[in-house]
Simulated scan of single mutants.
Amino acid sequence: MALNQPDKSASEQASKRLASIRPRDAASLLLVDRSGGALRILMGRRHMRHVFMPGKFVFPGGRTETADGRIAAIAELSAADQTKLLNGMGSRSSIQRCRALALSAIRETYEEAGLFLGRRNLDRPSITHPDWSAFVERNIHPDLSVLRYFARATTPPGGSRRFDTRFFLAYRDAVADALPEATGPSQELEELCWLPFSEATQLDIPEITRMIIREAEAVLASNPLLEPGNPVIQYRMKYGRFVREVF
């Protein structure tokens, strides 16, 4: 027993470190095509080289950067969406953090899917950050008003990477331009596809992703115009299972 004690102690310390990891802000966008008879959602398969969910189908999205909150936009989040985001932030709430979440969803959609959400304008955007240079080159201003905040989920404790992800909905109509190669410059997502909701839930996806797809479908059924003011669904892990809460 004595010989095994150091290994056990090291294992316990590692478990405690993993349990204490604070989830990082992240954002994901469910982009919906309503041009045909049935609504279709954009999904892509994560490259197998990824440590986090390799080979799984996901929505465009990723980690939020502090710099995202300082990017100029042609229109801001609705008051209702901003309030919902602020109410869930606790002591670290700020308008800049709200903006960072929404803008990172737009940035990640470009980086992973090659799609520019915003409005083209004769005036060049006053953006100097290199991550947004493609928007500036095309005179496309990010538009936060087209995003509707509707869900939130936090990666359970125990993993080396944890994310506190806010999910936004938007229609494909808000896309001002797209890269000709039909993919994003980061090459993080493969096999980008537009699928009916029923088919999207049959893909190789994490269970929480399946839940979020169903929540999005319910929001669109009750609020097809995506007017501000919809409830926000939050999933958190409790006693080994996801608990659903409505705000």
Rank of each mutant, 00 (worst) to 15 (best):
D123F: 03
R124S: 15
R124D: 14
P125A: 11
P125W: 02
P125C: 10
S126E: 15
S126K: 14
S126T: 14
I127E: 14
I127N: 12
I127S: 12
T128V: 15
T128G: 15
H129E: 15
H129K: 08
H129W: 13
H129M: 07
P130H: 05
D131G: 10
D131K: 10
D131N: 14
D131Y: 13
W132L: 03
W132K: 05
W132A: 02
S133V: 08
S133F: 05
A134F: 13
A134G: 12
R138A: 06
R138Q: 14
R138I: 02
N139S: 12
I140Q: 04
H141D: 02
H141I: 05
P142Q: 11
P142D: 13
D143A: 01
S145F: 14
S145G: 15
S145Y: 13
S145R: 14
V146P: 12
V146C: 15
L147K: 09
R148D: 06
Y149N: 11
Y149K: 04
Y149E: 10
F150K: 02
A151I: 02
A151C: 07
R152P: 03
R152E: 14
R152K: 12
R152C: 09
A153V: 04
A153E: 12
T154L: 01
T154E: 13
T155A: 08
T155R: 07
T155Q: 08
P156C: 03
P156Y: 06
P156N: 04
P157T: 07
G158S: 11
G159I: 04
S160V: 11
S160P: 09
R161D: 12
R162N: 13
R162G: 12
R162I: 08
R162A: 09
F163G: 10
F163E: 11
D164N: 15
T165S: 05
F167Q: 06
F167M: 02
F168N: 00
F168E: 00
L169R: 07
L169F: 09
A170N: 08
Y171I: 02
Y171K: 10
Y171T: 14
Y171R: 11
Y171M: 05
R172P: 11
R172I: 01
R172K: 13
D173G: 07
D173C: 06
A174V: 08
A174C: 14
V175T: 07
V175S: 09
A176H: 02
A176Q: 05
D177K: 01
L179V: 07
P180I: 04
E181R: 01
T183H: 09
G184A: 05
G184I: 01
G184F: 02
P185K: 00
P185Q: 00
P185N: 03
L189K: 01
L189D: 02
L189Y: 04
E190K: 07
E191T: 03
L192V: 03
L192K: 01
L192H: 02
L192F: 08
C193M: 13
C193S: 14
W194S: 09
L195G: 15
F197R: 00
S198G: 06
E199I: 08
E199C: 09
A200Q: 08
T201N: 05
T201S: 12
Q202E: 15
D204L: 12
D204G: 11
I205H: 07
I205T: 09
P206L: 07
P206W: 00
T209I: 07
R210V: 02
R210I: 01
R210G: 12
